[in-house]
Design a protein around this nucleic acid. Structure first.
Length: 117
DNA sequence: CTAATGACAAACT
DNA sequence: CAGTTTGCCATTA
């Protein structure tokens, strides 16, 4: 809040939450994919930032959101660093060295799967 | 208001 | 090909 002129706020976040919640089981997506779906490809950072705010939203499967390399970059933000990997493994996602194997296979692109009519 | 940081990504050297 | 730098948008100090 600079002083004023800021009202949108969570708008962007809500969009991210909605998409993340729509991620099918056994799939994962990247910050850039979500950002791209929201029309802000270069705002991948904000997606991650939204996840940071998502801590108040237990409904947000943030563990399904990783960077474009399929690397569990945000694992450290979880209650326990292993929690993220464990959750992903529970969904048949293979992870090794904190990185999703066959990421392109488990990758879920909202722009495609949701198919922007 | 300016400056710096951030769960990233793409471009450049 | 690998490491480094800039860009993006929002939040915090």
């Amino acid at each position: 809040m600079v002083t004023s002129l800021n009202n949108k706020n969570k708008d962007f976040f809500e969009q991210v939450y909605e998409v993340v919640k729509l991620i099918p089981k056994g799939r994962a997506t990247s910050y850039g994919a979500i950002a791209n779906y929201l029309g802000a490809k270069r705002s991948s950072r904000m997606v991650g930032w939204a996840m940071n705010a998502a801590h108040s939203n237990p409904e947000i499967p943030a563990h399904r959101v990783v960077n474009r390399n399929g690397l569990l970059t945000g694992k450290m933000h979880f209650p326990t660093p292993t929690r993220m990997q464990e959750s992903l493994e529970s969904e048949n996602i293979v992870i090794e060295n904190d990185q999703i194997q066959d990421f392109k296979t488990v990758f879920w692109d909202p722009s495609i799967e949701l198919e922007i009519s």
